[in-house]
């Protein structure tokens, strides 16, 4: 199997688990090195083991970088007491080295989270993901296919949204200027959309039951989503990445 396909071919349920565990682990670290190293590791990993559109990746990273910047200055400006030596003062305002380190670590955390999220989003097929959750994690078929119905309705709902906005424009609504008018005007949009959703939901559910869907666990699959040895190797790499970035982050800080 080609190296560049590894992350795309990885079992989606296991990939999901790895992403969640990585996040929950990173949340315990308040040094900037750990998330920064993890970020570099994820990007390298993705560079070697996947074929993604890096232009798209960059585009999707922009809002996260902006958010990280927001975190940085917020955490500097509204920092909790953290001790340490003062490294910067402006009038009565003081920033200590400990506070600055923490702020940096939170900003990098945002970046690290984003990189692993994008790794998941850009290498995973949505339908395979849900089917894999059903096969590996025993997600109830009722829920799994319920989710699938919603997903495939997306273009229908989008089209309906556009039609309703067009019709409303004819009646002179939906051109509100202020955000509070928009929030208020949302109900006008939501009610026809939700009313149609109720009808569609019942029809789709009936169609599924008419095709003998009972919600019982399935015994056979047209396309089984397997767990292979490759998946365990990939999981191992992720865990190593976590351990290395965690340990070296702590080491760097204590120097």
């Amino acid at each position: 199997m080609v190296l560049h396909e590894q992350l795309h071919e990885m079992n989606p349920a296991m990939k999901f688990l790895v992403v969640v565990v990585s996040m929950l682990t990173l949340a315990w670290f308040f040094n900037p090195w750990t998330p920064a190293l993890f970020f570099v590791g994820v990007v390298l990993f993705q560079f070697v083991c996947s074929l993604i559109n890096w232009k798209l990746w960059l585009l999707l990273m922009i809002p996260f970088v902006i958010t990280a910047f927001g975190y940085l200055w917020t955490t500097v400006l509204f920092a909790a007491e953290a001790g340490g030596t003062v490294i910067w003062t402006w009038k009565q305002f003081e920033v200590t080295d400990a506070q600055w380190t923490r702020a940096l670590s939170l900003a990098f955390r945002v970046i690290a989270f984003s990189s692993i999220s994008l790794l998941f989003a850009l290498t995973t097929k949505p339908v395979t993901f849900v089917i894999s959750l059903m096969q590996q994690f025993r997600l109830s078929p009722k829920l799994a296919y319920g989710i699938m119905v919603g997903y495939q309705f997306l273009p229908v709902v989008k089209e309906e949204f556009i039609q309703i906005r067009h019709a409303h424009r004819l009646r002179g609504v939906g051109v509100e200027k202020w955000w509070w008018q928009r929030i208020y005007g949302m109900r006008r949009l939501l009610i026809p959309l939700l009313a149609a959703a109720v009808r569609k939901a019942e029809r789709a559910a009936f169609a599924m039951e008419a095709r003998a869907f009972t919600g019982k666990p399935r015994t056979t699959f047209f396309k089984p989503v397997p767990v292979r040895i490759h998946d365990w190797i990939l999981v191992f790499i992720f865990v190593m990445l976590l351990v290395i970035s965690g340990l070296s982050g702590v080491l760097f800080m204590n120097n």
């Binding site: 319920g146 939901a201 019942e202 789709a204």
Partner: peptide
């Protein structure tokens, strides 16, 4: 009911 929740989410 499950499908209703799902289609509402999409809306």
């Amino acid at each position: 009911e499950v499908v209703l929740m799902s289609v509402f989410s999409v809306v």
